[in-house]
């Protein structure tokens, strides 16, 4: 796995060398928590797993930096196979929404407490209608948001989901489907 780091102070790129156990991945998400990168899901290994990369223990050898990498095995946490999802961090919890699991788009909201590494496959929802199945969408955390134009009340903190791709065909079929409106 190749990890590139752009130093904002020096405006220079550096390569972060990680162990060979850290396999190549795509369609995953990365969140920074407690000075570590939590990398969830990826396609190249079947869309399964959580990797934790600690760049603070880096050692530099011949211009390359080595970070400590930990792979949390499936035996420890029963992760679903997911990719093309979003992962939004709020306090100690990562909220994982949508994506593609085993070739099927989903609209499941699951959570992972990064402090305890406890996983909740389906977060209980108390009301409202969840977004439809989708992948390639975006999500971000906001402290407050006014949901309706005619109602000045704000809610929050909240996760805002924008757009995405939905359709009936799985990824084994051609790239065909519909795009969700952004707003």
């Amino acid at each position: 796995m190749k990890v590139d780091v752009f130093n904002l102070d020096t405006q220079r790129w550096k390569n972060l060398k990680v162990s060979s156990e850290f396999k190549n991945m795509v369609s995953h998400t990365t969140n920074l928590y407690d000075d570590k990168f939590y990398i969830y899901g990826n396609a190249s290994s079947g869309g399964v797993g959580l990797s934790i990369l600690d760049p603070t223990t880096e050692e530099e050898h011949a211009g390359r930096i080595t970070g400590t990498h930990t792979k949390v095995s499936l035996e420890e946490i029963p992760f679903p196979s997911v990719q093309l999802h979003t992962a939004t961090l709020y306090e100690d919890t990562l909220y994982i929404f949508g994506g593609s699991a085993n070739g099927t788009r989903i609209n499941t909201l699951s959570s992972l407490n990064l402090k305890t590494l406890s996983y909740q496959p389906q977060v209980p929802i108390k009301g409202g209608t969840p977004p439809g199945v989708r992948s390639f969408h975006s999500a971000c955390l906001v402290p407050n948001i006014q949901v309706h134009t005619d109602d000045p009340t704000t809610i929050g903190p909240a996760i805002v989901i924008f757009g995405g791709f939905f359709g009936l065909e799985s990824w084994s079929a051609s790239y065909k489907g519909s795009f969700a409106p952004l707003l």
Partner: peptide
């Protein structure tokens, strides 16, 4: 645009039409 209120765990659908 879909909004999940993390305080009440309620989904909302925002509209800017």
């Amino acid at each position: 645009m879909h909004v999940l209120d993390l305080q009440t765990m309620t989904w909302h659908e925002g509209k800017l039409s």
